[in-house]
Structures are given as C-alpha cells and as structure tokens.
C-alpha cells in the first residue's frame, strides 16, 4: 500500500474536500493504484538533472507601475454568493 485511508483523510482536509466514508474508500484504492503506477519514475536516475518548470525557457516578464482601471464594485461583487453591507463579500465566521 502506497497510501492508507488515514493519509487520504488528511489530504482531503488539506484540500478542503469533504469526502463521504464510501468516497474515501474508493479514493484510497484509486490513489493507491495511481501512486503505485507513478512509482515507475524511480526507475530513472535523475541525480543532477535540473527540474523543468516551463518547457519554453524564459525569464523576466514585467509590467510597468501604471494604474489600470479596476472593474468596479458592481462587477467585482456580481457573482458573489453573499454580499455584506454595501460592498463586501460575506463569509461564515471561522469556527474552530
């Protein structure tokens, strides 16, 4: 086993995904199979190989410090599930 149900539960918490017990079970089996498969990467010796973050090697993309118009409160909040007061997003309180 590459991964057990407890690990999967922990990962689900990190990812803020609520998984039902049955989903957890299936997820554990599937993730285990996939992780077992990707283990084949260890057949390769990658000592001293630089990782590739972008396939096309590039550096330095900038913008100048010039103000561009914001989209406005109406559009900013246009898709908000809940709005607080005049112009804030509303979220439930943090309960530990």
């Amino acid at each position: 086993m590459k991964i057990n149900q407890k690990d999967v539960e922990h990962v689900a918490r990190l990812a803020r995904l609520n998984l039902e017990p049955q989903e957890l079970e299936v997820m554990t089996v599937q993730m285990d199979a996939i992780l077992g498969y990707v283990d084949k990467l260890n057949e390769l010796d990658t000592e001293g190989i630089e990782p590739t973050a972008h396939a096309v090697p590039m550096a330095n993309a900038f913008r100048e410090d010039e103000i561009r118009p914001s989209i406005g409160i109406e559009l900013a909040l246009g898709n908000a599930p809940m709005v607080a007061g005049e112009s804030c997003f509303q979220v439930p309180k943090v309960i530990e």
């Binding site: 900038f62 913008r63 100048e64 103000i67 989209i71 406005g72 409160i73 900013a76």
Partner: peptide, 30 residues
C-alpha cells in the same frame, strides 16, 4: 494594475487578477 491607495470603498480597487477570478494571470510589477 489596480491602485494601492489606502482607505477606498471596499472592493473598489479590484480586478480579475486580484479577485482571483478563474482564468486571470499575474504579471510582475517591475
């Protein structure tokens, strides 16, 4: 390119990038 001015009406200085809307991308201020 949104302004950093302090004390403006909430969410008035926002755009797809700083709202984290789907598809928006960051570009670094030189």
């Amino acid at each position: 390119g949104c302004s950093t001015r302090f004390g403006q009406a909430p969410n008035s200085q926002t755009c797809p990038v700083c709202l984290g809307l789907p598809g928006a991308l960051p570009v670094l201020n030189h």
